[in-house]
Design a binder for these strands. Structure first.
Lengths: 147, 147
DNA sequence: TGCAAAGTGGGGAAAAGTGGGGAATAATCC
DNA sequence: GGATTATTCCCCACTTTTCCCCACTTTGCA
């Protein structure tokens, strides 16, 4: 039931570990058995899907037409970054080098709950992202949510 | 089935806690189990939705296509501010740091009942907001309500 | 005017976040 | 192929924050 939400600015230690906020951990379903699949975000950040959610995505990817060049490319570029990680006794996960590199994450990171996934951003990169977005939250929200 | 109404000027203690007026608490449905989801208001204030109301919104967000850039941005920028809080034995909730920051709330706050949600304002910010609004209560009512 | 409920403040136990040591495992280099 | 080096993972320790509980003051009502 619980979807991920909230934000946190946490440290990434020298070993590349980062804690997952307790509130997000408690939103994890038992089926996920404390496991995530992290992969490259569409934006310059890391996506973190609970195991059970990720499996659904894999089913979707598997159903794509593998004789379609673009489908092959999509699957390739998503899966090549994917890595399965499990929470340690302290509620942390270890980020993979390629993904830290892709998201330009160093010693601090922004953890954002986004529905069925968690996103991990470099604080500066996130700021840049926000500035690049058209400032039409309200209009967008209204068009999407307006009854 | 209470809708929230009324206003109150309450204190925010050093721990970021604020009491919810008894009248508003009694307007909470049992389904909300004493729980709210607070999030960023369109104006510089905090929105407080009872759990049951919030879940309806979440269903809407969940139905958005996450392969659409604008939809991702909307979900991200709304959910990152969201935080679920439960009333303590004294009828208080703890405000999140990011939201206190956003709404510039320090040691006093205005609590305003607004239909299906409660709004929490910094008194000065609310004053400023009022002054910035065109002073045509009557005309506004006519244009919004008239039909 | 007394009692109950509402609002306010703070102490202390428990949990969350952070850092690092060391054993097991894997990778690399003679 | 064996030894050395590097990684990974598990565990322990410390600090900070959160949350639960108790206590006091004020307000409202009978």
């Amino acid at each position: 039931m619980g979807s991920f939400k909230g934000q946190a600015d946490y440290s990434v230690d020298k070993k590349g570990r980062i804690a997952i906020p307790a509130k997000m951990r408690s939103a994890l379903r038992p089926e996920a058995v404390g496991t995530f699949t992290m992969t490259r975000g569409f934006e310059p950040c890391i996506y973190l899907y609970p195991l059970d959610e990720w499996l659904k995505k894999e089913v979707q990817y598997a159903s794509l037409n593998q004789y379609d060049r673009r489908a092959r490319h999509l699957v390739r570029t998503i899966l090549m970054w994917a890595d399965e990680v499990t929470l340690d006794a302290q509620g942390r996960i270890g980020l993979s080098k390629p993904l830290m590199d892709y998201a330009t994450i160093t010693e601090r990171a922004l953890i954002i709950g986004a529905m069925d996934r968690i996103e991990i951003w470099d604080p500066d990169a996130f700021q840049t992202y926000l500035e690049d977005q058209p400032d039409d939250h309200e209009a967008l929200a209204e068009s999407v949510m307006g009854s």
